[in-house]
Write a protein that binds this DNA or RNA. Structure first.
Lengths: 201, 201
DNA sequence: TAGTAACTCGTACAAACGTACAGTCACTAA
DNA sequence: TTAGTGACTGTACGTTTGTACGAGTTACTA
């Protein structure tokens, strides 16, 4: 299942038109939402015409699917960049966390897209969130088999803990930033507040 | 500034058509987003025709404004339902928190709408978030004048702390719920996990 | 009672959207 | 060379959207 990924580069200058379309769509979807982004502005951003988008992806929904697939891909690549047996198992967890964090920081559009996806998520199986949860669950199972992750809590609880800790802070940051900007005059000198999200029970 | 509010009831059966339109819009905007909600479905939900919406509100943007105004109104009413001098000042804070929490629980559409508003927030002054921040700031100032709230942290920090603690949990809950549903089989017996959001520094 | 203002409806329209399709170009295989 | 295939363009079409507007109805006032 963890086959060799081609990793579909999200950042490069010489890409096929098909990839340029997908990357432009990710950025625009993340920034303005899928509904508010017309295929025409995607085409313009990618330097192609609307017809070509239809040619390559068929429908807008299929383009969205491709964008989400690319996002899951990035997560997989980041996680697999730290193999299970490469380090003392205690370090694998924190290293993988770091790799994902670096990936998200390098492609902030993914964070923005995820925020919207979770918001609009119809909770259907096959959802983007579902796929990421499954990915996380696999990771937890791996760690358990290696005798590392505790088996005291249920798998579901561990998955929630990981994803919410990782994503929750990123989701709430815009709220913090906006408020911080408005009271910038009174937040003298000190850096912007930081969030921590914890899951209990 | 804290004049007598007419409180614009959000839940009642005998309302003017104008109010029914606003309430239907709040619910539908919250559920599907503003862009994905056509004036025609709002009209149907309110039991009127599209023409009447235009007559009362002019544009869709103005209708959205009215919805947001009604939300801010609800917050004000909830806060002012616990007057400053009604109780020992130590209790005023927790009682006001409770009043707001009750209001949000009673009208969950407000929570959903807020989640979307923060997401799409263009960060402009006059925003919904801006207005709520200002409302919170006023509250904090009142408490400071009463000698209750600490003046050790800046006003901005206190506003962020209050709003994020109050709203952050509600925003992340759908994420937790969706994941919890998918691992329902493994979350045997135990209730759903609970979130806590804290702000540092 | 007459009149006027507000409420409500139904229709109409321009703009924007996603999609379909015919056609052009470049390149490869036979 | 010829036939064919995939990338790519431009136009066109049907649908849905927000908005405009005239006409009918109700309610209140003089």
């Amino acid at each position: 299942m963890a086959g060799h990924k081609q990793a579909a580069p999200l950042r490069a200058d010489d890409l096929t038109a098909k990839a340029r379309i997908r990357n432009a769509a990710l950025i625009l979807f993340a920034e303005n939402g899928v509904d508010a982004t017309s295929l025409r502005v995607v085409a313009e951003a990618a330097g192609v015409t609307v017809g070509l988008i239809v040619h390559h992806y068929g429908t807008k929904e299929a383009l969205r699917e491709a964008v989400e697939l690319a996002i899951v891909d990035q997560f997989e690549v980041a996680i697999e960049s730290v193999p299970l047996n490469s380090q003392p198992p205690a370090k694998v967890v924190t290293e993988r966390d770091l790799a994902v964090a670096r990936m998200l920081q390098q492609t902030p559009a993914i964070v923005d897209y995820l925020r919207r996806a979770i918001l609009d998520g119809k909770g259907e199986r096959g959802d983007l969130v579902s796929r990421l949860s499954e990915l996380t669950a696999q990771q937890v199972r791996e760690l358990r088999d290696a005798g590392l992750a505790s088996t005291k809590n249920t798998l579901g609880e561990q998955v929630i803990s990981i994803m919410v800790r990782q994503l929750g802070r990123l989701f709430l940051q815009p709220l913090v930033d906006q408020i911080a900007d408005e009271f910038a005059a009174e937040l003298t000198g000190s850096q912007k507040p930081r969030l921590t999200v914890t899951v209990e029970r």
